[in-house]
Structure formats: C-alpha cells, structure tokens
Design a protein around this nucleic acid. Structure first.
Lengths: 199, 199
DNA sequence: CCAAAAACAGAATGATAATTCTGTTATAAC
DNA sequence: GTTATAACAGAATTATCATTCTGTTTTTGG
C-alpha cells in the first residue's frame, strides 16, 4: 500500500560501478551517481545505506561481471596451462579495447579505500585470495598433466600472477599504453614453462 | 632586510612525504601537514605553491631516499643477477619491518592521483621507466655472464619485475601480511633461472 | 632607533559534498 | 474514494578543506 520504486537496483549498481571505476571513490560524489543513474539521493540512501556500502555493492557487482567475462574457463575444475594462457590473452584483448583504461576496480579500491576501511580491505583480500587460489589450482592441474614444471610452487606462482595483474592494471590506469605491457605478461607467464610466443 | 624563514624546507618535505605515504593524497589535509611538520600554512604555500606541487616534491624526495636505500647496488653498471636477488631480499627485509605497511608512495600515488593529474602521471611513469630500465640492464649483464637464460626478454622481464613490485606493495598497503608474499617473490624471480632457495 | 620586507599565526572565504529533512506524489489495501 | 505507506525531488544542514587575507612580529639596512 505504498508507492512503488521507480528504478532497478541492479542498474543503479551498474551505473555506480562505472562511476567509481572511472573516478575513484573520493572523487565520486553522490551527485555524480545521481546523474549517471538517474536515481535520486533518496533512492540511493534508502536502498544501499551510504556511499561506502554502495561501493561494496559495486565491488561485488564488478567481481561478478568480471568473473563471468574472464574467469569462467579458468574456474573449471580441470583448467590447466591452456586456460591460464587464454585468460591472459583475454586480458590483453580487453585492455587494448576502450573501457579498460581505468584499470581494475578491485585494484583501484585496494589502493585508495582499503587502507582506511577494514570492511573494504577484507572484501578485497577475499577476492584476491580467491583469484590466487584459482591460478594455483590450474597450475597444479598443469603440473599433474606435465605441462608445467614441478619445480614451481603453485601457491606462490598463483599469488605472483595476481600481484602482477594488479601492478599492470595500475600502470594502465596511470596512463601506460596496454600495448607496451605485452612483454611483461610474456615474462610473467614464462614461469609456467616454455613461453607461448604466438601473441 | 626581512625576517628569516624558521623551518627547513627539506624537513618539511620529509614530513609531508610521511603524511602522504600514510594517508594518501585526498585524505591528507594541509592542516595534517602543518601538524606533522610544525610549518605554517603560509610557509607551505609560500615555499611549495600548493598541495599538488607539494606532492610532487614529496614524490621526488621519496624516490631519492629509496634510491639511496634500495637501488644503489642495482644501479651500478655491472650489476647482475646477484644484485637483483639482493634488491628483493632487501625489499623483503624492509617490508617485514614496521614502516612499510603503507606500501610504496609511488604506487599509491599512481593509483590515486595519476589518473586525474597528467603532471603526476608523467612523474610516476618516468620513475617506473627508470626502474624497469635498471632491472633490464642488470638482466642483460646477467645474460652476458651466463647467469641468466638468454631466452628471456630483458625489457619485458624488467617491466614485469616493476609491475610485480607494484602489485605486492598494493597488497601490503591493503592489509596483506608481507610474510605471506615471499612465495610470490620467489616465483617472480624464478624467471631469472634456477631459484635461489636460501631465503 | 626607524622603516621596509618578508615570515608568522590564525581568521575568513568559498567551494564541495555527505547526509538528513520537508513537502509532494503515487500506490494499493480497505 | 479514502488513507496509510513509502517513494520522489530538491532544499537545508553540517562538515571539511584548499586557499587567501589580515594583522603581527622579526630581521636587517640605513
């Protein structure tokens, strides 16, 4: 027996995600989100609580959409070296497109907000741990099947790949052309064994 | 025929550097810097211009002091694999100390400020390019002397090490314990050849 | 000592922005 | 249709902060 909500919360989160990704947290005002989404302050506060909680929602939304777009094959239980290489090819393709010039929202938030907000730090660490574990599992599969050297430590290498992706994302956000970073990716992947030099 | 300045600009920059490192740019008010340094607003504006220029000064000061502390041996013209490994040992030692829980000022600034400020972005890129070149030169030396495989691309690997350091610094700032990152460093260094497993 | 120059301390300004409040409007149960 | 409910639009509130301004003090050359 009351008025009905005029906006779709999912679309609002999507809009907020774009603004946070583009501008960062501190440089995004709620007014910016109102403009982007068309949702009123009232609607945003009523539905999401406050700016920080909206960021958490955006972070989760971003993770989900990236998971669908980039991490799907790598999460399969039998993913191995091939899937790791394909993941990075995919990253390179996307980075050379528009849209990824803002780097990675998770990385941006880790740098800007996590140090002051334990809740956000926990969220970021959860995501990173998950990604490192996904890489590590694929590396172990590759080691079982003989594609990847048994000499490397799967957990260490998994974390290394996550850290490398963060560093590269940061460089892109800070203005480095993604095309200049191909060599760094090749170098990082070379720990898996003889490099795939096709692209 | 005028009053003399009561503060030492170098000390003021050192103080500002500490505050920017600890709190980031947006979350540092000029009042914070006044408190930290004891220098008045007037002195800061008169000597450094404004907050952004003060950040540039802090960044240069930080780079200089880190260069002295960490990069000295690696910059020697004949530095090779040994110096690269020692650099990373040194990083690990420092990271496990207090004081480096704030990550790396250059990385923090790259993430928070560079995207909005071309002048800062240029500064950050200059530093990164320099560091990548230092690594690359040492890798080339190692390749000449046979310590490092000729199969790796020195420039790509140099950039990779810089990106990795950025990613790791970010994780530390976001709250990850430095001791958890040793495996990632080992993995990254394994591209140079058979790993130094001593520590 | 006197006066000009430049540093000092801290108040004033102006802008931005997170959050709350107020009055208005649409909805649905009765 | 009436009415309670909850959403809406946007004004009001409160706070923070970068920067500038004002009046004061110190220094040094005459």
């Amino acid at each position: 027996m009351a008025r009905v909500r005029e906006f779709d919360p999912e679309q609002a989160i999507e809009g907020a995600t774009q603004v946070f990704w583009r501008n960062g947290f501190a440089d995004t005002s709620l007014e910016d989100i109102v403009s982007e989404t068309g949702v009123s302050r009232y609607g945003l506060y009523g539905t999401f609580g406050n700016k920080k909680e909206l960021l958490v929602a955006a972070l989760r939304h971003y993770e989900q959409s990236m998971s669908d777009m980039l991490w799907g094959d790598l999460r399969k239980p039998d993913a191995g070296k091939q899937e790791i290489l394909e993941f990075w090819h995919s990253i390179r393709r996307h980075a050379e497109d528009e849209g990824f010039c803002n780097g990675c929202l998770i990385v941006n938030v880790a740098a800007e907000v996590a140090p002051h907000e334990p809740e956000i730090a926990a969220e970021v660490q959860r995501i990173d741990d998950d990604h490192a574990a996904v890489f590590a599992a694929a590396i172990r599969n590759g080691q079982k099947s003989g594609e990847i050297s048994l000499k490397i430590d799967a957990d260490g290498a998994g974390r290394m790949l996550v850290a490398l992706s963060h560093g590269l994302a940061l460089m892109v956000r800070a203005g480095v052309k993604p095309t200049e970073l191909g060599g760094a990716i090749e170098a990082g992947l070379s720990i898996l064994g003889s490099p795939d030099s096709s692209g």
